[in-house]
Simulated scan of single mutants.
Amino acid sequence: MPYLAATVALVGLIAVVNLLLTIGVVRRLREQTTELADLRSRPPMGDAATTLPAGANVAPFEASAVDGRTVTLASLGERPLIGFLSPSCKPCAERLPGFVRHAAERPGGRDSVLAVIAGTPEASADYIEQLSAVATVVVEPDLGPVQQAFGVTGYPSFLLIRDGEVDATDYDLGPIVERDTEVETATVG
């Protein structure tokens, strides 16, 4: 009989511990559901601004290109294409071939395309090699003067500038290429 009472007490104790653990799990699931609902109500990462918005004026800047030239916004012409990339950024590596391809096909040549690489020259060597033939390349640390002039907060970031003002900006190259082609077609036509 004492064994039976001890067994019932043990089973009861296990049931109470199980009930407390279940209450804790349910409470945590409710917290996570609230957090998930909050995350879903925010705009997607891609929609968050990573540069100055369209219509904003670009602040003056001066930087040295890897080939030794001094770069300013005025030195890039009236309608430059600008890309901000980082060697440590996986989406940058994915978009780099498209940026190189579009820059190579773009009227105005490398003097109307600026590629700003956030990092050290050593870490950026592969990017410099790929971009030098099609763009003016500037390597600077995070939050360097060119990045500050364009309000860059994330990578990759692509912009089209028209007369010192942001015409289009996006983290994805596709909309920028479309806008660039559209403006070029309107200018030629």
Results as ranks from 00 to 15, higher is better:
Asp111Cys: 04
Gly68Ser: 07
Pro43Leu: 11
Val58Met: 00
Asn57Glu: 15
Pro80Met: 06
Gly109Val: 09
Ala48Leu: 15
Leu85Lys: 06
Gly98Gln: 11
Gly46Lys: 08
Leu81Cys: 06
Leu85Pro: 01
Ala104Tyr: 03
Phe84Asp: 00
Gly83Phe: 04
Leu52Lys: 02
Ala49Pro: 03
Lys90Ile: 09
Glu78His: 08
Met45Ala: 12
Ser86Gly: 15
Ser86Tyr: 00
Gly55Thr: 11
Pro53His: 07
Val100Lys: 08
Phe84Gln: 04
Arg106Tyr: 05
Leu81Phe: 14
Leu73Gln: 00
Glu105Val: 10
Pro44Leu: 11
Leu76Met: 01
Pro97Met: 04
Phe99Pro: 03
Pro107Gln: 02
Phe99Ile: 01
Arg106Asn: 04
Gly77Tyr: 00
Arg106Gly: 00
Arg106Asp: 02
Gly68Phe: 08
Ser112Val: 05
Leu85Met: 15
Val71Gly: 05
Pro121Val: 08
Leu85Thr: 08
Ala59Asn: 11
Ala49Val: 13
Pro80Leu: 13
Gly98Asn: 14
Gly98Lys: 02
Gly77Asn: 00
Thr50Asn: 08
Ala56Asp: 12
Cys92Gly: 09
Glu94Pro: 01
Thr72Gln: 05
Pro107Thr: 06
Met45Gln: 13
Ala93Gly: 14
Thr120Ser: 15
His102Asn: 11
Ser88Ala: 13
Thr72Tyr: 03
Ala63Thr: 14
Gly98Asp: 08
Asp111Ala: 14
Gly55Ile: 09
Ala54Thr: 13
Leu96Pro: 07
Gly46Asn: 11
Phe84Pro: 03
Gly108Ser: 04
Ile82Tyr: 08
Leu52Glu: 01
Pro60Glu: 14
Ser75Met: 06
Ala48Asp: 04
Glu62Trp: 04
Ala74Lys: 09
Ala65Gln: 10
Gly68Cys: 05
Ala63Ser: 15
Pro53Phe: 02
Pro87Leu: 07
Pro44Ser: 10
Leu96Glu: 08
Pro121Thr: 07
Ser75Glu: 02
Phe84Glu: 09
Ser86Asp: 00
Ala93Phe: 06
Gly109Thr: 03
Val58Pro: 06
Pro60Met: 10
Pro97Ser: 03
Leu73Ser: 03
His102Gln: 11
Leu114Cys: 06
Ser64Trp: 12
Ser88Glu: 09
Arg69Met: 02
Asp67Phe: 05
Pro44Arg: 13
Ser88Lys: 07
Gly119Ala: 12
Ile82Phe: 14
Asp47Ser: 15
Gly108Asp: 01
Thr120Glu: 14
Ala115Cys: 12
Cys92Met: 07
Gly98His: 08
Val71Tyr: 03
Pro91Lys: 05
Ile117Gln: 03
Pro43Cys: 09
Asp67Cys: 12
Ala115Glu: 10
Leu73Pro: 02
Glu78Ile: 02
Asp111Ser: 13
Ser86Lys: 09
Cys92Leu: 08
Pro43Arg: 11
Arg95His: 09
Ala54Asp: 07
Ala63Tyr: 11
Ala59Arg: 11
Ala49Ser: 14
Asp111Gly: 12
Pro121Ser: 08
Glu78Lys: 13
Val113Lys: 04
Leu73Phe: 06
Asp67Ser: 14
Arg79His: 14
Val66His: 07
Pro97Leu: 00
Val113Arg: 02
Ser64Arg: 13
Pro97Cys: 05
Phe99Trp: 07
Asp111Asn: 13
Gly46Trp: 04
Leu96Tyr: 01
Val58Ala: 02
Arg95Trp: 03
Glu105Pro: 10
Gly83Trp: 02
Ile82Cys: 10
Glu94Ala: 13
Leu76Tyr: 03
Phe84Arg: 05
Pro121Met: 00
Ala48Ser: 14
Leu73Gly: 05
